[in-house]
Design a protein around this nucleic acid. Sequence first.
DNA 1: CGTACACCCTGGCCGC
DNA 2: TGCGGCCAGGGTGTAC
Length: 273
Amino acid sequence: MPELPEVETVKEGLKKILKPEITIRDVVFRRKDLRSPLPLKAKNKIIAQAITNIERRAKYILIHTENSLIVSHLGMTGSWRVELSKKALRTHDHVLLGLSDDSFLIYNDARRFGLFDIIDQESLKTDKRFSLLGPEPLSDGFNKDYLFAKTRQKKIAIKQFLMDQKNVVGVGNIYVCEALFVAGVSPLLPAGKLKVKQAERLVLAIQKILKQSIKSGGSSIDDYRTVDDKKGSFQQKHKVYGRKGKACFKCHSLLTMQFLSGRSTFWCETCQK
DNA sequence: CGTACACCCTGGCCGC
DNA sequence: TGCGGCCAGGGTGTAC
């Protein structure tokens, strides 16, 4: 579910709430693990610590404290929200951060594909989860020359290439479909066959789609919610995702859906070559 | 190394 | 109304 626009929206929402003077008063883990074990022993590292900064890297949210770093990933169904009382707890609320303003920051994740970890600030550089990541799609490092060079000799489909976080981060199943449509590139095209022109159109399309979605607060198909527990609205602007058998907005032929490495893939066979 | 695939897990929806 | 099957925005481990 959450791709770059959703994670960015959640990060911005957390930033508004977690003012610099706020400290973490208490940490409660309501189960032992999500996808990986919860850092049961490391929780003392963040107790009584002030929150100093919050940033997003790829689809991860990084909450800096004075001495440590909270690493969070929303997986498919993760969310962060704030409550003023423990009476408001819901099923799948797995981590509670009690804050110095008496509110609770809560990580909820039905499918538990997400991540909540506490690491040392220095380990960020060496941590395997981060050291192998590709460039941010909205940074200068992601440009047509990079994409063209990086795709050379690659046989995998361009869609899979773009979803591989080693090549570029933050792009998931929805936005890759949308960006490929905007760029007029077939998801099945072997990455190595991409022309310079197509690489240029793809970079621009990815950046445009991601920026538009961030403005809409992301796409809420099902579970995704902002920190205020609201839905994003970009799903209303999807041109191909979820529109199998419906008319293409450009040429009116019927959109195709096919599974590609287990992920549903939507596109227009007429407009995307 | 690159690629393909199963798997982790719960819930909602669809068809019977 | 109930139930089984299928599908879902992600990432990783394993096998070739």
